[in-house]
Design a protein around this nucleic acid. Structure first.
Length: 661
DNA sequence: AAATGAAACGTTTTT
DNA sequence: CGTTTCATTT
C-alpha cells in the first residue's frame, strides 16, 4: 500500500522528476509502483530503462514486477549502468571481452615500469597502482581536460611528471585496444561515443541517483527519453572515491526545466530510537534540504546500545557471543564495518562459536588461482588475441616465464595474421616468426635470441609443423603446453557448460591443479603434507564444479564470461549472519545490526580523509550503516589493539550520537 | 631468463 | 598472513 507522498511520485507526469527518498522510506516500492503504472498506461516494457547500482537490485525489482505482469516484465531494460551498456554494445559487436580491473592494473604497471622519472624532477612519482586509480577516477569525473592537465591541477607538485603520466595512459589505451580488452569504464565511454546506436526510451529511471558520477551523468545525457525519474538521498552518497558527484543530485533543478521534486518522509524501516540517533549525527553535515522523517515503525522499540571493549579481539568475541545469544534469525542479523580489515576478525570469532556467516565482497572468486586459470583458458578460447591470459597459462609450464611467453604470443599472432588461435592451429609457415626480436637485436637493444632451434627437437606433438616451435629457449614442457593448448582450442563447442567442462577435464587444467595443490600442501621443510594435498585437490575440484554449475544458466559463451567479470563481486556463498562493508550494505535492511570498530581513525577513516576524502562522507557512511537496522542496533568499539600496540579513542560519531562524552 | 628462497610489505570503499 | 619484491643461483 502506498502513502500519499509515494503515490504523488508514482503518478508524476512525464518530464523531469526527482524523488528525494531518505533511508527506509519505501524507495524500492515506489520505483516498482512507478514502473507498474507505466506498464498499465500501455508503455511497452522495452521502452522503459531502469538503471540501478547493483544488478541484484535490478533483478529484485523486475522479480516484483513479474508477480504482477508476468514474463513481459523481463523485457524492461534493467541493470547497472555497466551491465546495460554491455548489453547494448554487444548488439554492435558480439565479441567483447571484459577484463578484471586487477588484470588491467597489471598491464598498466608493466607499461609504467619501463619509464624513467628520475631525470625530470626530485618529486617521488605516484606509484603505478595509485596512478591507475587516478586515471580511473579521471575517466569517471573529467571530460574537458586531458589526464595530464587534470592531474597537474590536482597536485601541482606533479606538474613536471604530468606529460609522462599522460604518455603512460596513452600507451595503456593502445595496448588495451590491441589485445581486445575492455575495462568497466570503457563500457560507458563506448556507449557515449555510439549514442546513435541506442533507441529512444519513454522513461528512464535512475536509482541511487546520489551516487551518480560525471561519467554516468554524461551517459544519462547521451540517452534519448521523454521522461526522467531519478531517486536518491543526499545523505547516502558514499561513492566519492569513485567520482560520485553530489552536485548532480543537488543541481537537478538547475539542469532540467521544469522539474517536479517529490519528498518521501515516512520511514517504515527503523524504530524511533534508531532514526533519532542517525539524525543526531547526520545533522552535523551541511543541509541541502531539510529532513523531517516521520517514524512509522512503532513496534518493540529497543534502545540502541553502545558496546565498549578493552581489546580488538575481545570486541569480535563479544559481538559473536551476543549474536549467539540473540533470538533473531541469523540471516536477519548483519555485522557492518567501514574497512574490510575488520571482516577476518569477526568471521573467525563467529566460526569459533559455531555461527554460520556469509560474506559479501572480500574474497573474490576470481582471485583464486584455479578459478583464474579456468577463465584465462576460456579467454584464450573466445578472445583471438588475449595476451594476458596466454602469459598466465604458459607460466605454469616449466621453463617459460613472462618473456618467452610474450615472444611466443607475438610469433603466434604473426603466424595467425592477428589471431592467436589461428596461429596455433593453422599457422602461416614463416621461416622466422621472431623477426621483431631480431631487429631489436640489430639495434643493440636486446641480447641475442640465439640460433633458432629445430622443430624436430620435439616429438609426438600434433603441432609439430608450427614455426613457433623454433624458439631457441622453448623447453619440452613449454612445447607440450602449446600442444595441449592447441588441442583445447581445436574443440568446437557451443554451450558455456561444455566449454567449462572441457577446460576442467583438460591436461592443462589438471596440471595446474596439481601444481597449486602441491604449493598449498608444502610444509616448512619442503615436503608435502598428504592430508593437506588431498584437501587442496578437493577444494579446487569443488570450485571447478561450482563454475560448471554457474555456466549451466548461460547460453552464450561471451555473455557468460562477461557476466562473471561484471557480477563476480555480487555473488554470495553460505548461510547465516551477514558480514558486509558499509558500501556493500547499501540498499539492504536487517532486523539486528552491529556496527564494528567505531574508533577515531578507523571510522572515520582519517587516513582517507587526509588523502582527499572528507569527514562529511564518513558521516554519511555512518548514517547509511545505522539506518540499515530495523529494530536493534549495536555500536561497538575497542580501546586497544594488542597486536599493533595501539590505543584508540571512540569515534567522534559516537559522541555526536550522544553515546559517549 | 627462470627458479628458488628470503625479506619486505601493507591494509578503502565498487561496477 | 599472505602476497609481492629482491637476491642469488642455475
Amino acid at each position: 500500500m502506498l502513502n500519499p507522498e509515494q503515490l504523488a511520485a508514482v503518478n508524476a507526469p512525464y518530464g523531469y522528476n526527482l524523488v528525494i527518498a531518505s533511508a527506509g522510506t519505501g524507495k524500492t516500492s515506489t520505483i516498482v509502483a512507478r514502473i507498474a503504472r507505466l506498464l498499465e498506461e500501455g508503455v511497452e516494457p522495452q521502452d522503459i530503462l531502469l538503471l540501478t547500482f547493483t544488478n541484484k537490485a535490478a533483478a529484485e525489482m523486475i522479480k516484483r514486477l513479474e508477480q504482477k505482469f508476468g514474463k513481459k516484465a523481463k523485457d524492461i531494460e534493467a541493470g547497472t549502468f555497466h551491465a546495460v551498456s554491455y548489453r547494448w554494445l554487444k548488439n554492435i559487436d558480439s565479441r567483447l571481452v571484459l577484463k578484471q580491473p586487477k588484470e588491467l592494473k597489471t598491464l598498466f604497471k608493466s607499461i609504467y615500469e619501463r619509464r624513467d622519472f628520475s631525470q625530470v624532477t626530485e618529486i617521488k612519482p605516484y606509484a603505478a597502482s595509485s596512478l591507475y586509480d587516478y586515471y580511473s577516477l579521471y575517466q569517471n569525473s573529467e571530460f574537458i581536460k586531458s589526464f595530464g592537465e587534470w592531474i597537474a591541477l590536482k597536485n601541482q607538485e606533479h606538474k613536471e611528471l604530468a606529460p609522462i603520466y599522460e604518455d603512460i595512459v596513452l600507451e595503456y589505451e593502445e595496448l588495451k585496444n590491441r589485445y581486445g580488452f575492455l575495462s568497466f569504464n570503457d563500457l560507458l565511454l563506448k556507449i557515449i561515443e555510439n549514442k546513435n546506436a541506442i533507441k529512444k526510451f519513454k522513461e528512464v529511471l535512475v536509482d541511487e541517483y546520489q551516487d551518480t558520477n560525471n561519467l554516468q551523468g554524461k551517459f544519462i545525457d547521451a540517452l534519448q527519453f521523454d521522461s526522467l525519474f531519478c531517486v536518491g538521498d543526499y545523505d547516502q552518497s558514499i561513492y566519492a572515491f569513485n567520482g560520485a558527484n553530489i552536485d548532480i543530485i543537488a543541481t537537478f533543478k538547475d539542469r532540467y526545466h521544469p522539474v517536479n521534486v517529490f519528498n518521501l518522509s515516512k520511514n517504515y524501516r527503523s524504530t524511533k530510537y534508531i532514526l533519532d540517533l542517525a539524525n543526531r549525527v547526520i545533522i552535523n553535515n551541511e543541509r541541502i534540504y531539510p529532513k523531517n522523517l516521520e517514524v512509522m515503525n512503532r513496534k518493540n522499540a529497543i534502545l540502541p546500545k553502545l558496546l565498549a571493549f578493552e581489546d580488538l579481539y575481545a570486541q569480535y568475541e563479544g559481538v559473536a557471543a551476543r549474536i549467539r545469544a540473540s533470538l533473531t534469525p541469523r540471516n536477519e542479523i548483519a555485522v557492518i564495518y567501514r574497512n574490510n580489515a575488520s571482516a577476518d576478525g569477526i568471521e573467525a570469532a563467529l566460526r569459533e562459536q559455531g555461527i554460520g556467516c556469509k560474506r559479501k565482497g572480500g574474497t573474490n572468486l576470481f582471485d583464486l588461482k584455479e578459478v583464474k586459470a579456468i577463465f584465462d583458458l576460456l579467454a584464450i578460447l573466445i578472445n583471438p588475441k588475449d595476451l594476458l591470459a596466454f602469459i598466465h597459462i604458459l607460466e605454469y609450464a616449466k621453463g617459460i616465464g613472462a618473456n618467452i611467453a610474450k615472444d611466443l604470443y607475438e610469433a603466434l599472432v604473426l603466424c595467425g595474421e592477428g589471431d592467436l588461435k589461428k596461429g596455433l592451429l593453422n599457422p602461416k609457415d614463416l621461416k622466422d616468426p621472431f623477426t621483431k626480436r631480431a631487429r631489436n637485436y640489430q639495434l643493440g637493444l636486446f641480447d641475442d635470441l640465439g640460433q633458432l632451434g629445430s622443430k624436430s627437437r620435439f616429438q609426438g606433438l600434433s603441432i609439430l609443423d608450427n614455426p613457433v616451435l623454433k624458439h631457441p629457449k622453448l623447453s619440452q614442457d613449454g612445447a607440450l603446453y602449446l600442444n595441449e593448448l592447441a588441442k583445447l582450442l581445436r574443440l568446437r563447442l557451443k554451450r558455456p557448460q561444455s566449454f567449462i567442462e572441457h577446460i576442467v577435464d583438460s591436461f592443462i587444467f589438471n596440471n595446474i591443479k596439481e601444481q597449486l595443490a602441491q604449493q598449498r600442501a608444502k610444509r616448512k621443510d619442503g615436503s608435502i603434507d598428504p592430508t593437506l594435498y588431498n584437501e587442496a585437490i578437493h577444494k579446487i575440484e569443488r570450485r571447478a564444479a561450482l563454475i560448471v554449475h554457474i555456466a549451466k544458466n548461460h547460453n552464450d559463451i561471451y555473455k557468460f564470461y562477461n557476466a562473471m567479470v561484471l557480477g563476480s563481486s555480487e555473488m554470495v556463498q553460505g548461510e547465516g549472519v551477514n558480514l558486509l562493508t558499509i558500501h556493500a550494505s547499501k540498499g539492504l535492511e536487517f532486523k539486528e545490526v552491529y556496527v564494528l570498530d567505531l574508533m577515531e581513525g578507523r571510522f572515520p577513516n582519517l587516513k582517507l580523509v587526509s588523502k582527499g576524502g572528507s569527514i562529511e562522507e564518513e558521516r554519511r557512511l555512518f548514517y547509511v550503516a545505522v539506518t540499515r537496522a530495523k529494530e536493534m542496533l549495536y555500536l561497538s568499539y575497542a580501546k586497544y589493539d594488542r597486536v599493533k600496540k595501539q590505543e584508540f579513542l571512540p569515534s567522534r560519531f559516537l559522541q555526536e550520537a550522544g553515546l559517549v562524552d
